[in-house]
Simulated assay, not measured.
Amino acid sequence: MNKAFTKETDGDEDEDGALPEIPAGTKNYITPQGYARLRAELLQLIDEERPKVVEVVHWAASNGDRSENGDYIYGKKRLREIDRRIRFLTKRLEIAEVADPALHHGSDQVFFGATVTYADETGEERTVTIKGIDEADHAHGEVSWISPIARALLKCRVGDVVKLVTPAGVHEVEILDVKYPAASAQA
Rank of each mutant, 00 (worst) to 15 (best):
E55A: 15
L93S: 02
Y74A: 09
V53R: 01
N63V: 08
V57T: 15
S62D: 11
E81G: 02
Y74I: 07
K91T: 13
H58V: 07
R78C: 06
T90L: 12
R78G: 03
P51R: 12
V56Y: 09
N63P: 00
R84P: 00
R92V: 05
R78V: 06
R92T: 06
S67P: 01
R85W: 08
A60K: 09
G75P: 03
N69F: 01
G70A: 11
R66S: 09
R84M: 04
K76H: 11
G75M: 01
L89H: 11
I86C: 00
V53G: 05
E68R: 12
I86P: 01
R87V: 03
W59Q: 12
K77C: 07
N63C: 12
K77N: 14
G70S: 07
I86N: 04
N63E: 08
R87Y: 05
R87P: 04
R80V: 11
E68L: 11
R87G: 03
D65A: 12
N69D: 10
G64L: 07
R66C: 06
I73R: 00
K52N: 15
V56P: 07
P51L: 14
L79W: 00
D71V: 01
V53C: 10
V56W: 07
D71R: 06
S62Y: 09
I82M: 08
G70H: 00
R85Q: 06
R84L: 12
G64Y: 02
R85I: 03
K77G: 05
D71S: 10
D71L: 08
D71F: 01
K91H: 12
K91Y: 13
D65V: 05
E55P: 09
A60W: 11
K77Y: 10
W59R: 10
L89I: 13
R87I: 00
A61S: 07
R85V: 04
N63D: 08
D83L: 05
A60C: 13
W59N: 06
V54N: 08
D71H: 10
V57H: 06
V54K: 11
E55L: 12
S67L: 14
F88M: 13
K52V: 10
G70N: 04
V53E: 02
R66V: 13
D71C: 12
I86L: 03
P51F: 13
I73H: 02
L89F: 11
D83E: 08
P51Q: 10
Y74Q: 14
R84T: 02
R78E: 13
Y74E: 07
V57R: 01
D65R: 01
I82V: 09
K91E: 14
E81D: 05
R84D: 06
H58F: 15
G70R: 00
G75L: 05
G75F: 02
S62N: 15
L79D: 00
N69L: 06
